[in-house]
Structures are given as C-alpha cells and as structure tokens.
Amino acid sequence: MTTVLALVELTESGALASGAASTLAAAAKIGNPIAIVVASPGKGKNVAADLGALGAAQVVVAESSTVATALVTPSVDALDAAIDAHKADAVFLPNSGDGREIAGRLAVRRRTTVLVDAVDVAKGKNVLIATHSVFGGGFTTTSEITGGIPIVTVRQGAAADRPVAGKPTVSTVAVESTSSSGVIDSTETLASDSTRPELRGAERVVSGGRGLGSAEKFALVEQLADTLGAAVGASRAAVDAGFVAPSLQVGQTGVTVSPQLYVALGISGAIQHRAGMQTADTIVAINKDPDAAIFQVSDFGIVGDVFTVVPQLIAAIEAKR
C-alpha cells in the first residue's frame, strides 16, 4: 500500500484551515492518507474527528513548543521526520502561502522538488502525476517527479472526489526543531467584514456592472460573493459610475484575474472588461440584455434580472450545502 502524508493547517482559533479537504482528497487518490497536524502541545487532537470525516485513515499530531513563534520550520521538521517514520511515498500540502514555503524547504531537505498548485492527481509509475492549470486555465499541464519523493501542493478547493469518512487512529509525536527560522511576533486575524478574499489572486470572483444601478444596490454583488467565499470586483462602467472604489476594477486598465469561477452580474462584457477576466476557468453571467457580449464567453449565462435571479441563487446554493 502506498503511504502518503497530508499536512493540514489550523486556523488561529484551532479549527481546520480551508485547504484541508482538498489536500486530503488528493492524498487519498494516491494512497493511504496520514494527516499530519502540527500544533502546540495539548492542542491539535480536537480536529481528529474532522480529519476522519475528510478521509484521513490516521492522524499524527506533531507537537512543537515553537509552532506559535517559529515561522514555518516546525512543520518542515515534522514532515521531514514523518517521511522516515512512516516510510512515506509522497507528501501533500495545501497550496497556501505557508504550505508552499513548507513544501519548498522540505523539498530541499529531501533533495527533491515540488509539483506546485495541483488541481488534480492520479497514480503514476513514479508514484503520481499532477495536473496543473496554467495562465489562468489557458493551458493544462501534467507533471511528475523522478529521482525523489514527490511533494505536491494542492490548490485549495481543487476538484477531487471526497474520500470515504472513517474513524482515524490518533497518535502524538514531539517535534524537535532546531532550524534557523523567522520569528512570529504577533498574528492578527482580519475582522469578519474584511475576510473577503483579495481580488488579485482570488479563486472566485463576483463582479458587478452598471446593471446594478447604484452604490447601495451593489450590495447584492457582495452578498453573492460572501455566499461563494469570493472576492468582489467591478466593471469599469460601475467604477466610473461611482458604485465602488477603482481598486475593484477588473479589466485592461484594472486588475487582471484568473479565478476558478468568475460571476459577472449586470456586466455587458466590453472588450476592456473581457481582457481582465476571460481566462477564468468558468464564467457565469447574468444580464437582462440577451445580446450582451459577456454571453459569448460565458459557460453558463442567464438572461434575466439580477435582482430577481441572484437572491434565488443565494437561497438555492445555501439549500444545497
């Protein structure tokens, strides 16, 4: 049986971070997933049941007294030790900021490299093959690692079948960390009204155009964005009309985005705007004008009134969760 390690990150409050599900799902496609949780002594065990629900067969809580103060390196040390302890064939991490840094350092230590931002994985003759979406989905590549243990970062929310839930065995190990590392002085979690993802680099974006009508009614865009965990964007027309700040403008003279999902509400789809978003993996548009150019590039379009369709959509999405 192929044994794979899956690093799962915790939020500041000690819950599982959002990348855990996709990381474990990808790991489970390749082998028997062992979830590695790096936490301060006494913390970390409480997520074991949640990890079981996500498909972890085994949970190893790696306790480190420096995890709250030493940047990234306790997780590197924990994974480095776990590869030997479990004779692991591959390591999966979330493609988060910290996840990539941990993967990079671990790869150097194990004299290997990283397959970064995988959107899917499959078994291969060199353990696994990863699929990547490049230049905003304009290209799809597959890659593998030869000559070393594969280390893979998995795009958060990547499509993968959820593995079967189980009751994992839980064990605890101590991590000795002597690596040279940066020091964490303090961590600040943004207030709930600003946890909306940043537009640039967001995996999901909901944008509004002139069709929203006013700055007050633009709140509809924010409501759908929050339902989808998306960033908020706008067309130039909406910015010029003063509905939102210029920093939210998507297009040739604004921000270029390549999210997995782009939702255009009341946007006609002028070339200026399309240039900033047409590499999105999936485009959804709602506009009352059946001739709007946005429908030429959308995967799913609705000719209708945003003020009727969007509230129904929010209710329908919430009902399906």
Binding site: A107, R110, R111, T113, F139, T141, I145, G147, G148, P150
Partner: peptide
C-alpha cells in the same frame, strides 16, 4: 537535487 520535475503533457484550452 536528485529529484527533478518533468512536464509530461501540455494542452491548450
């Protein structure tokens, strides 16, 4: 490093 990554396929959307 001993381990190296190799691109196996590239397709245009």
């Amino acid at each position: 490093p001993a381990g190296r990554s190799a691109v196996l396929s590239t397709t245009v959307r």
